[in-house]
Computed example of a mutant assay.
Amino acid sequence: MPDNSTSSLHSLTPYQPNKVLPIIFAVLIALSLSIHTFQNFRYRFWRVTFFLFNANIVFMTGWILRTIFSHEPLNLPLYIGQTILIYAGPPIFAAAEYNILGRLMQYVPMHTPVHPGRVVIVFVYLGAIVEALTGAGAGKLASSTPGTDKYINGGTLIAISIVLQGAVECAFVSMVALLHHRCAKAEMLPRNITVICITLYGTSALVLLRCVFRAVEAFTTYTHSCSGGSCGSVVRNEWYLYVFDAAPMVLYTLWLNVFHPGRFLPRNPKRYLDIDGRTERLGPGWIDERPMLLTVADPFNWQNDARGGQKYWTSPEKYAVCEDGSFALGSASNTSAAERKGYMHGAV
C-alpha cells in the first residue's frame, strides 16, 4: 500500500483505506469468536476465558466499522469509532491470559509464588489502566488534527499505555516462567501444564509484537519534533496496521481456540494436581479471610507466607482423589457429558 501524500484530500487517513482487508479480518475474528463461544459452552469455561469473548466482540466491531469507513473515508464518527475499538481490543485480549494463569496457579498451588486470585486482580487492575489510557488517547487522536496539542496529548497517552502494557506483559511472562520452572524442577510437568505454558508464552509474544509496533508508531509520529523523512511512515502506510496489529491479534485468538484451556485445566478451581504429577484431588481451595480493604492494600499478602497459610497440598490424605480421571493424564474432561457420568465431583 504505497504512501500517498494527496490521499488526505479524500480520506481522514493519510491513505485511501483498503476495502477488502477489513472484511477479511472481521470475518476471521467472527469465525474465531464463534469457535470460542462453542468451546466455552462445551467446556463451560466462561469464568476463565470471558475476557477472550469480550475482546473478540470489541475487536470485530472495530474492523466492521473499519470496513464501513473504507467506503466513507470522510465520516468522522466512523473514523473515531473504529480507531478506539481497534486500539481497545488488544489490552482485553491480554486480560484473558491473566485468568488462565490464575487457574493454572490454582491447579498447582504448591508452586505458586502468590495467591492466584490476587495475582489475577493485580494484572486486571493494571490492564484496566492500560485500557483507560488507550481509549482516551485513541479518542483524542481520532478527533484532532495532526500537530495540534490535542493530537500530541492523545499520542502521549497512547505511548504511555503501550509502554505500560509491554511492562505488564513482561511481568506476566516472568510469572509464567517462574511457575513453569518450579513445576519442571519438582518433576510435575505433565503435558497439559506444558501446553498451557507454551500457549501463554506464544500469546504473550504476539501481544509484545503488537506493543512494539504501536510504540514505534507513537514515538515516531505523535511528537513535536516529527517532520519529513521516514518519520510517521508507520501511519502513512496501511500495511503496517494489518501485519503488526491485526494479524498478531487474530493469531492470538486462533491460538487460544486450538489450545483452549478448557481442554487442559479443570473447571473446578478447587481441583489440584498432587505432588506425584498424575493424581488430582479436591482441596479446600484458596481462602483469604482478611478484610477486603487489606486484600486491596496488600494483594500479594506479603505479611504472611506468599503462598497462603493453609498449605493444604502438604496433607493430601485429607482430600478425595478425583475418580473421573486426570487432566494431567488426558483422561478427564470438563464437558457436560462427563459430568452426567458422575465426573467432576464438586465442580462449580
Rank of each mutant, 00 (worst) to 15 (best):
G89V: 08
K150N: 12
D149A: 13
N75V: 13
A94E: 01
S70R: 07
R118L: 02
V120T: 10
D149W: 05
N56D: 11
L65S: 09
V58W: 00
V130H: 04
N99V: 07
G135K: 04
T148I: 15
V122Y: 02
I64N: 00
A128I: 15
Q106W: 01
H71C: 04
T112A: 12
V130T: 10
I160T: 14
G135H: 00
A142V: 08
W63C: 09
G137P: 04
L157N: 09
I158P: 09
L76Y: 06
S70F: 00
Q106R: 15
I64T: 14
A95I: 11
L164R: 13
G137Q: 04
S161E: 04
V120A: 02
Y107C: 10
F93V: 13
T145R: 00
S70D: 03
T61A: 14
I121W: 02
T61F: 14
Y87D: 15
N99D: 02
A159S: 15
E97W: 01
L104M: 11
P146C: 03
S144V: 14
V122C: 04
R118H: 08
V120N: 00
W63V: 14
L157M: 14
L157G: 03
I162A: 15
I57W: 01
A95G: 10
R118M: 07
I80R: 06
H71W: 02
Y151R: 07
L141P: 14
E131I: 10
S143D: 06
V108S: 03
F123D: 02
Q165F: 06
A136T: 09
P116W: 02
L133Q: 13
I100H: 01
I57P: 06
Y79C: 13
T61P: 13
E72R: 08
L133K: 11
I64L: 12
I121A: 12
M105W: 02
I152Q: 09
P73H: 15
R66T: 11
S161D: 05
F69T: 14
S143C: 03
L65M: 13
Y79T: 14
S143G: 02
A88T: 11
G62A: 02
I84M: 05
V130K: 12
P113W: 02
I92Y: 01
H115N: 06
L164G: 10
N56P: 10
N99F: 00
I129P: 06
Y79S: 14
I64G: 04
Y98S: 01
I92P: 03
I80F: 05
L74P: 03
V130Q: 13
H71I: 12
V163C: 11
I152W: 00
S70Y: 01
F93K: 13
L164N: 10
V120I: 11
Q165G: 05
V58C: 09
L76V: 14
I57F: 02
A132F: 01
A94N: 08
L85G: 14
Q82L: 08
S143P: 07
T112S: 09
